[in-house]
Nucleic acid binder design. Sequence first.
DNA 1: AAACAGTACAACCGCATATAT
DNA 2: CATATATGCGGTTGTACTGTT
Length: 247
Amino acid sequence: MARLRDGAPNLGVRKGSWSKEEDDRLRKCIDEYGEGRWREVPLRAGLKRCRKSCRLRWLNYLHPNIKRGEFEEDEIDLIIRLHKLLGNRWSLIAGKIPGRTANDIKNYWNSHLMKKLASWPNQEQTKSKILDTKVFKPKPRTLSMNSEWLKGLRTSPINESHAMSDKAIPLSLTEEKISWWKSLLVDVQDENGNLLSVTSSAGEEFLMSSSVEDIEAAREQGEVSVGGGDFGDLVLDVDLWSLLEKI
DNA sequence: AAACAGTACAACCGCATATAT
DNA sequence: CATATATGCGGTTGTACTGTT
């Protein structure tokens, strides 16, 4: 018997756009049984859809917290900043923007923002600054204590010369570091767009009321040192505010 | 009004990773 | 430890909608 890739028997599985009745059935099912166990959802809801399709429909369209309509200016700013920090980690970016789904953001990035950047004929440098993501990559999507990634961290020595490479976080995985990752994306700006502070949970203040110019000047002199490693990308992230003014 | 082009976004697909057995 | 299964993610595609000629 032909099977779909996820192992479900291919018994007249429906594809394409969802009807209102299907939406209602799915919504009712989730209300009753809660999210998760997607494998059972099509059966419970009486839908001829695969579990992936159900999950996607719920997460991207039916979920009650989803915000629809135009992206606001501050959301766009945040997307650009987070993309610079995280790259195409759409789910992580979406996690920082309430009401927006990874799919929404990905679509918006690909259709709106890329086009916007393409329309800047004489600003190659600015474009490359935004598009050239120096990605902080918390490699695994979730941190299970049995994850292969953690095993690798425990067994391989930290290679300081490759700090912030795209392989993995070259930090010992202490509670403090985990907290630092959690707080990484929380920052505050004043009315001029200057970054006021980026702090770890341990209260380690990385930047204090620094203007872009101050930071750039300090960086040229090699004075900006953030946290325990080479976190120069944080400074680039700050610089992004000046780039954003051009959008 | 019809044909066509461009755009936006929902949905699908393949893969990586986590979890269960 | 190996294998099977489930889950979630990012890239890509398909199509409905809108604007232009």
